[in-house]
Design a protein around this nucleic acid. Sequence first.
DNA 1: TATAGTTACTAAAACGTTTAAGTTAAGTAG
DNA 2: CTACTTAACTTAAACGTTTTAGTAACTATA
Lengths: 344, 344
Amino acid sequence: MLKITIKDIAKLAGVSTATVSKIVNNKIDDVSDTTVDKVRKIIKEKNYTPNYLARSMVTKKTKTLGLIIPDIRNPFFTDIAKGAEDRANELGYSIFFCNSDDDLDKEFTYINSLIEKQVDGIMLAGAAKRDKDRERKININIPIISVDRNAYYKGIKGSIEIDNYEGAYEGVKHLISKGYERIVFVSGPLDTKPSKERLRGYKEALIDAGRKIDNENIIVGTYERNFGEKIIETLDYSLENVGFFCGNDLIAIGLIKSLKEKNYKIPEEIGVIGFDDIYISLLISPSLTSVRQPSYKMGYESIELLIKILNNSNEEKNKKTLKTRLIIRESTNRISLDKNKKDK
Amino acid sequence: MLKITIKDIAKLAGVSTATVSKIVNNKIDDVSDTTVDKVRKIIKEKNYTPNYLARSMVTKKTKTLGLIIPDIRNPFFTDIAKGAEDRANELGYSIFFCNSDDDLDKEFTYINSLIEKQVDGIMLAGAAKRDKDRERKININIPIISVDRNAYYKGIKGSIEIDNYEGAYEGVKHLISKGYERIVFVSGPLDTKPSKERLRGYKEALIDAGRKIDNENIIVGTYERNFGEKIIETLDYSLENVGFFCGNDLIAIGLIKSLKEKNYKIPEEIGVIGFDDIYISLLISPSLTSVRQPSYKMGYESIELLIKILNNSNEEKNKKTLKTRLIIRESTNRISLDKNKKDK
DNA sequence: TATAGTTACTAAAACGTTTAAGTTAAGTAG
DNA sequence: CTACTTAACTTAAACGTTTTAGTAACTATA
């Protein structure tokens, strides 16, 4: 029971494969109505669907994209993936899904395998640690859109980012306005551009509030919950009235967990704020104040942009920066001591 | 700058494409060592990689699988997906990723599109609501493995499930042993086999403990957090000493949230237990007692099985049932009143 | 009536591989 | 020396499409 091909249809209809092909692809200016009807009927009867492989061989388009994210278990990336998938689906594309585990080697391997499978383009949220030289050497002749994270491949044709600087600035400003004394930045790896930008926002907000920047208050680790849980053990100053600005929600959630175990009161004694606003942040207690990223939208727009580039409607603007929004919840929402106001 | 093909390599090496092909695929019994070396060198130099489309056309294998899950935002399915991806990757397969949003129509569409793209097989966690007749009509001539959820397509060649009956039985037994009086089952849609099995486990556990089954204590809804949040509004009996057995963790988390808002004490007054043991269950407070499913393993083994079937090493046993494990945490862990023991 | 234009097709090449079958030259056995 | 075997290749078809260039039969125009 072999699959039915265009030849079978052609034979049954008594026409050439060229004619059938035209009808299948709706290029029927050239075909009489009677023929169209006849062939369509047979196609339906026989349940014929064209073989995409064969089609792709000649058209050089697979209508297939690659999506690489670092961590499918982080809801932030899951949301990006969902946005990407939805838009791809709407536009008739399929997605090869790859999870790099934040490992650059694995990312390389996936990129190569995607190229072999002839994807039309790649959407990449890169692994945290980069290697400019190696990346630049890889010969990529299909378009890549980078999302969230930075990368240096030659093929990169555009990017979707968020305004990490602004997001961090707002967050830190909020902590200060709530009267927290010492503002600690618990950062993810500084190899990533988002982390760097957030650090910049953190510093600016402090300076603008007339505070000093103290390296003791900048802690660098990974974007994982584990890291958050371990932090307080490493601090040798009093946590009284400290405001923690965390690199992402997972870190913040880990931190809160360990703070609660030590019986600190949040937000009364300690304030915690995260980044991403994954949906878990709403569920933990105290619920987490967080800088919301439009993650779904980031995925959606990335695919949008990628496909625009594929159809080389030469986009003038291949870089897009989306806005964050501070979502205030319990973890910082103490009856405001409003130190800030008093100071003024 | 066109992509380099096998012909280019053949010409450069002064051999036929057949020879190059053999070397690429390591079928070199037939080729002299010198030729192998020479060709390999040129391949490396020119950075040649074979075109999978062309290869697939003749071999009729794409080394590509489809993965359909209902909800990428549910960590349970995310874990399944991760397990699937890891195993597929290990075995040299790529995965087309599809999210059905628990919508059967969307599932149909995806299946068709996967078939058009010539995937070798499909791994399916089906949408909750099924339609036997429609499913049976779809002409699928590639193998499908169903995981977790049931489905009725003709192509289904195996399944990976968990012992939902046993899991529910253990959970309910635990609630009873903790002395909760009224045991309420908050179920997901009863269209799914897992739900049905859990209901069976719930009933059996009650009967074995000498309790009566009361339909008032069986509430059916969806597998979403929203549903969990709304439940207590619908109940007209006292919640004092009630043990809730929830269809999944998301429901349980929603339920706990609303209970806390009404100032019920968990686990002192009310016990709550979930199903799946997604990692969030550890993070909320009180942390959630849950029936753990080996979700990663389910994905991993599904792909394992699917690929075995593809290589038709005619597996005698195409159905596998994995075990659950009850993880006891705060949400049921009250100083045991041990009613049970007293009764005896 | 001859010419040009239009309509509705078809023939065949091309895409980049794999593979069954064939070929050639050298080596070996009798 | 002949016949057979083996090693190391090559030839060419096949996979299922799309697409360019061509053709035949009409129709309209001058």
